[in-house]
Amino acid sequence: MSPERFARINEMLDNRQPDLTICLDQVHKNNNIAALVRTADAVGIHQVHAVWPDPAMWVSGNTASGSQQWVKTHKYQDIHQALDVIQGQGMQIVTTGMTPDAVDYRELDYTKPTAFVLGHERDGVSECATSRADYHITIPMVGMVQSLNVSVAAALLMYEAQSQRLAAGMYGQRKLDDAYCHKMLFENGHPIYAKACRRKSLPYPELDEHGQIAADDDWWAQMRQVQPTEV
C-alpha cells in the first residue's frame, strides 16, 4: 500500500459519521441507488439501510461504481425491520412528504443522530415510515413540478446535514471502532493478501505507521504455504 493511499483511507475513516444514515424505502431504480450510495460516501455516511422485498433489487457489485466497498448496505424485507434497527441506535427518523406538519428541511438539527428515509420513486415514503417518523420535512419549490428526483432530494438533505456537522466540528474525529478501521485499511490497502487470508482462514496482521504489513514469521510462513486446493 502506498503512503498516499494509506493516508487517504485514514482520512476517510476520520470523517465517517456513524450516527448519520439514509434508509431507502423501496427505492428501486439502479441509477438512483447508485447516486444515493455515492452521495452517502461523499458526505461521510458509514452505512445505509435499504428495504428491498425483492432480492433482484439488491445492489450488485458494480451498481454504485465502487462506492459499495466503502458504504455498507444493510438489507431488509420490510420497513418495520429497518426502522426498528435504526431507532434502536437512537437516531431520529426524518421523512420527506407534504404532510400538514412538515417543516422546511433546513429547520431541523442534524447534528443529532439522524436517519433520512427516502421513498419509492413513484409512491414516495410508505405510510408506515411516515407514521413512525419523528419529523416530516419538505424541500421548498416555486416551480411547476411538485417533487424532485429521489437522489437529488437525498443529496440536498445529506449535504445540509454535512454543513451543520462541519460547523459543529464533527468531522475529522474518528468515531469508528479500531477493528473495523483495521479491516478497511487491510482489505483496501492489501487486497491480494486479504483474499489469501480469507482463503487460508488467517487473521489480518497488524499494519505499521506507514500502512505496511507487520506480521511475524509464522504468519508469513502460513501465507507462503501452498494448500491442496491451490496446487
Score class of each variant (00 low, 15 high):
Ile45Pro: 00
Lys183Tyr: 11
Thr114Glu: 06
His210Leu: 04
His28Pro: 01
Ala155Val: 12
Ser163Lys: 13
Pro191Thr: 02
Asp41Met: 04
Leu156Glu: 07
Leu24Cys: 10
Glu187Pro: 03
Arg122Ser: 15
Asp178Lys: 11
Leu166Lys: 15
Cys197Ala: 11
Ser126Ile: 04
Thr130Ile: 14
Asp19Lys: 09
Val59Ile: 15
Gln164Trp: 13
Met144Trp: 10
Pro100Leu: 04
Trp219Cys: 12
Asp177Phe: 05
Val94Trp: 07
Gly119Ala: 07
Met223Thr: 08
Ile192Ala: 10
Asn32Glu: 09
Trp219Tyr: 08
Ala82Arg: 08
Lys183Thr: 14
Ile192His: 08
Tyr180Phe: 10
Ser2Ile: 00
Asn10Ile: 00
Asp177Arg: 05
Leu20Tyr: 01
Val37Leu: 14
His49Leu: 00
Val226Gln: 13
Asp123Leu: 13
Asp54Leu: 07
Met141Pro: 10
Arg198Phe: 00
Pro205Val: 01
Gln162Val: 01
Leu148Gln: 13
Arg122Asp: 15
Gly88Ser: 00
Glu160Gln: 13
Thr73Val: 14
Glu107Ala: 13
Gln164Thr: 11
Arg199Pro: 00
Asn149Ser: 13
Val85Phe: 02
Arg5Val: 06
Cys181Lys: 01
Met144Cys: 06
Gln26Ile: 02
Pro55Val: 08
Ala40Arg: 08
Leu108Ile: 03
Glu160Trp: 09
Ile213Leu: 10
Trp52Ile: 02
Met184His: 02
Leu148Lys: 10
Gly44Ser: 09
Gln146Ser: 14
Asp78His: 12
Gly143Arg: 07
Lys200Gln: 05
Pro205Tyr: 02
Leu202Asn: 08
Met170Asn: 04
Ile192Thr: 12
Ser147Lys: 01
Ala179Val: 10
Gly44Thr: 09
Asn15Tyr: 08
Ile9Ala: 02
Gly189Val: 06
Ala215Met: 04
His190Asn: 11
Pro18Leu: 04
Val85Ala: 12
Ser67Asn: 05
Gly189Tyr: 00
Ala194Ile: 05
Ile93Glu: 02
Ile79Pro: 00
Gln222Asp: 12
Ala40Met: 13
Met223Gly: 10
Glu107Asn: 14
Lys175Ile: 03
Thr138Pro: 00
Asn188Lys: 11
Gln89Met: 09
Phe186Tyr: 11
Asp216Tyr: 01
His28Asp: 06
Thr111Gln: 12
Ser201Ala: 14
Asn32Cys: 03
Ile22Thr: 15
Ala129Ile: 03
His190Gln: 05
Ser151Cys: 13
Tyr105Phe: 15
Asn62Gly: 09
Leu148Phe: 15
Met158Gly: 14
Gln146Asn: 15
Tyr135Asn: 14
Ala42Glu: 11
Leu118Glu: 08
Val142Ala: 12
Ile213Phe: 10
Gln68Thr: 08
Pro205Trp: 08
Glu107Phe: 04
Lys29Ile: 11
Gly97Arg: 09
Pro140Gln: 08
Val142Phe: 12
Glu121Met: 06
Thr95His: 02
Asp123Lys: 13
Cys181Ile: 03
Glu160Leu: 01
Glu206Asp: 15
Asp14Gly: 02
